[in-house]
């Protein structure tokens, strides 16, 4: 089971490319993501909440696949086995004042 926290995944082994930025928007490195797995974050949802990777301006458009690959390798599973992050509105970054500025009846064709 992927989410079985008793599963032995070994200890964190530092690597030469741990300083490499993976999520550009939130500036999260490969090392931080790998370490998070060893700190018990086994799902993409947990990783996102813990590190905020994939929650910046591009909403994971660039790094989601990369993060998935890194987490899967650390857990020694296939990336396809990892549930992707939840999809929520707004699907694209939207400023709060716009989200709150809903079109009113009668003003339909501005």
């Amino acid at each position: 089971m992927i989410n079985d926290r008793n599963r032995e995944i070994g200890t964190f082994v530092p690597a030469a490319d741990d300083d490499m930025i993976v999520c550009r928007c939130e500036e999260i490195t490969k090392g931080e993501i790998r370490r998070a797995v060893h700190e018990g974050m086994y799902t993409i949802t947990e990783i996102r909440r813990y590190l905020r990777c994939g929650m910046g301006l591009c909403q994971g458009q660039t790094c989601a696949r990369l993060v998935k690959g890194i987490v899967a390798r650390e857990l020694k599973i296939s990336p396809a086995q990892l549930e992707p992050a939840s999809s929520r509105a707004p699907m694209r970054p939207t400023e709060m004042h716009i989200l709150a500025n809903e079109e009113k009846e009668g003003k339909r064709d501005e």
Binding site: A89, M91, R92, H97, I98, L99, N101, E102
Partner: peptide, 22 residues
């Protein structure tokens, strides 16, 4: 026109300019 959400009963929310439309 950016579709930012797809909800139950095939309702969508679209952002155009500074407003959102259903």
């Amino acid at each position: 026109a950016t579709v930012i959400g797809l909800y139950q009963d095939k309702e969508i929310v679209v952002r155009t300019g500074e407003t959102v439309h259903h």
